[in-house]
Each structure stands twice: as structure tokens, then as C-alpha cells.
């Protein structure tokens, strides 16, 4: 276990090192940040001295060396726009994104599993055929279209739902800002999370269905039936748990990816999360923030993978965490 975690920490470090190198190497193409920090009419000398004060005039290796040295002390630079340490900015935006992803995951889990299981148990039922047909269409609808349709129907036409923002958020544990502590907050998170889940939902329904079908045709399900167990316990106990194994590996990583894919949803709903922050940072050439965000996402991927592996290990007794199946 210790070794497993140690490996993952090393892996995270390596991922972040590579990402930071990549970010620095493409820095030149990210644009000139002084354009966003100053008026068009500012003189060239002023602009040059601003560049100097930002340390942008040094050769790239020098800048990178400085960056790594500071990063090792936990300082990932200061955002040009927010004028705060990039890590603070990201951590401030993190709850919004994580809560959005969490709500979307809940939707995915509570919709895709029952639907997928149903479609597997009753493959010929009209509702199964309908679900599969809809999921084929759904997989090809871009998320911003779903989001705009939701806004048009439920905000503009019906006036039931707020169309943007997080609404009333409550600070908990001193640091975390949550949508789930007030009715207004919950109402605000509904449409964005539906929009976000819509990308993955068809995929998950099909995944659950396919895995369930495979498990249903397995010997141990047949054996469980032969033991005299009624159909439902066989489906829900023997088949479902086994179905969840591949769903967790594929799905867990997908949900992890979703955290990084919230950009579109966040920008349509003006959701003040990391994805939107990143988009803005790119527009503003906020290089330290861009770099820190991408590194953070890399770190997040390793964390998600680790969590998925841990969860997989909890469910599957055959897995040895060091990665070798017994």
C-alpha cells in the first residue's frame, strides 16, 4: 500500500514536471500578457519595463529554472490577472468545479446504472430500444447545444430555472464554498450538471448495458440461477457488482476527465469554476495560471486514477494494488 502510494506520488511529480516543461516551451505562442495588463496607448518603454518586472525578458531556461525552484517551495507563480498565487486561485475555483462534476456524476450514476441494467435485462423491451436509440443520438450532441437548449426552455421560456452562476453559495469548513447548503444553490447547479452529464450519460448507459450483458452470459450468473436464486437477486447482487468493475475503471477515469472537461459547460453557464478560469486565462495570456492549471489537472488525473484503483481494489478481491493481478 505504501509502495503503491509512493509510486503514484512519484508518478504525479513526473507528470507535473513534464507538463510544466511543455507549458514553458509553448509560452511564446500563448501571447503577450502585457497587452491584457495595460492600455493600448501605453508606451513601448513602459511595456518593456512591465515585461521586465514580470521576468519575461529572461531566456526561457532561466525562467524555467526560476519556476522549478519556486515550485519546489510550493509557489507556482502569481496570476497576472488575479494577482494572487495561482494555486490559491485554482483552489478557490476548485469547489465550484468539483461540485459541478460531483452533481453530474450523481446524475450519471443514478440514471445510467438503472437504465443500463434495464436495457441488459430486457433487451427486446420497447423502452430499451428507445433508450439505446436516444443514447446514439445523445452521444453526438455537443454540450453547449444541450446547455443552450436547457437555458432556452427552462430559463427563458418557462422561467423555472436560473440561467447562470452558482447562486447563493455557503462557506463550509472555512474554505469550501458549496452549492448544496441552500435551496438557491441547489437550483443553480441543476442545469449545469445536467448539461455536463449529458456528454457522458449515453456512453455510460451503453457501457453499463454492454458489461451487464457480458456478465449475464457468464457461467457464474448461470450457476447462481442454477442454485435456485430468483432472477432479481441474481441481477442485482451477482451481476451488478461484477458489472461495476469495468464501469468503475472506465467510468472513474471518465469522470476524472470530466473535471477537466467542464470548460464548455462552465462558460455557457458562467459557472465560476476552474474550467472557465482556464479559458479566461488563455484569453488573457495569464501564463502562470495556465501553467499551474494544466499541472493541477495532470495532478488531478493521477489522483483520480489512484482513487479508481483503490476503489477497484476494494470491490475486486483479486487485485493487488501494486498493479499485478494475482
Amino acid at each position: 500500500m505504501t509502495q503503491f502510494l509512493l509510486q503514484r506520488i512519484l508518478q504525479a511529480g513526473l507528470v507535473m514536471l513534464i507538463i510544466s516543461m511543455f507549458c514553458f516551451s509553448i509560452q511564446g505562442t500563448l501571447g503577450d500578457p502585457t497587452r491584457e495588463l495595460a492600455a493600448m496607448s501605453m508606451s513601448d518603454e513602459e511595456r518593456a519595463s512591465l515585461r521586465e518586472s514580470l521576468g519575461l525578458n529572461d531566456p526561457l531556461p532561466v525562467q524555467y529554472g526560476r519556476f522549478v525552484k519556486r515550485a519546489l517551495q510550493g509557489d507556482l507563480g502569481t496570476s497576472y490577472f488575479f494577482k494572487e498565487p495561482t494555486l490559491d486561485v485554482i483552489l478557490k475555483k476548485l469547489p465550484a468545479t468539483l461540485e459541478l462534476s460531483f452533481a453530474a456524476s450523481l446524475i450519471i450514476i443514478f440514471v445510467s446504472i438503472p437504465l443500463g441494467v434495464f436495457c441488459a435485462i430486457q433487451p427486446r423491451h420497447w423502452f430499451s430500444r428507445f433508450t439505446m436509440a436516444v443514447s446514439v443520438v445523445g452521444i453526438s450532441i455537443p454540450v453547449f447545444l444541450t446547455a443552450l437548449a436547457l437555458i432556452f426552455i427552462f430559463s427563458i421560456t418557462l422561467g423555472w430555472m436560473p440561467s447562470f452562476g452558482r447562486g447563493e453559495i455557503v462557506q463550509v469548513w472555512g474554505y469550501w464554498s458549496t452549492n448544496f447548503a441552500s435551496w438557491d444553490g441547489i437550483v443553480h447547479i441543476i442545469m449545469p450538471s445536467i448539461a455536463l452529464s449529458s456528454i457522458m450519460l449515453p456512453l455510460f448507459i451503453r457501457l453499463v448495458r454492454a458489461e451487464m450483458l457480458e456478465v449475464l452470459s457468464s457461467e457464474y450468473v448461470k450457476f447462481a440461477r442454477a442454485k435456485g436464486l430468483p432472477a432479481m437477486p441474481v441481477y442485482l447482487k451477482h451481476a451488478l457488482k461484477n458489472t461495476m468493475l469495468p464501469v468503475i475503471t472506465v467510468g472513474g477515469v471518465q469522470i476524472g476527465i470530466m473535471v477537466a472537461y467542464t470548460i464548455l459547460t462552465e462558460s455557457v453557464f458562467q459557472w465560476p469554476g476552474m474550467g472557465f478560469m482556464f479559458l479566461e486565462a488563455v484569453n488573457r495570456s495569464d501564463i502562470p495560471l495556465i501553467t499551474a492549471y494544466i499541472m493541477f489537472v495532470g495532478f488531478l488525473f493521477v489522483v483520480v486514477n489512484t482513487l479508481v484503483d483503490l476503489l477497484y481494489g476494494v470491490i475486486n478481491p483479486m487485485v493487488d494494488l501494486v498493479g499485478r493481478r494475482q
Binding site: 457468464s218 457461467e219 457464474y220 448461470k222 450457476f223 447462481a224 451477482h238 457488482k241 461484477n242 468493475l245 470491490i315 475486486n316 478481491p317 483479486m318
Partner: peptide, 10 residues
């Protein structure tokens, strides 16, 4: 096949 007739997760 005894390898497959028992559910591996229980």
C-alpha cells in the same frame, strides 16, 4: 469450469 462458475467478487 470451476474458474468461472463461482462469482469472483464474493
Amino acid at each position: 469450469d470451476p474458474m468461472t462458475s463461482l462469482n469472483p467478487l464474493f
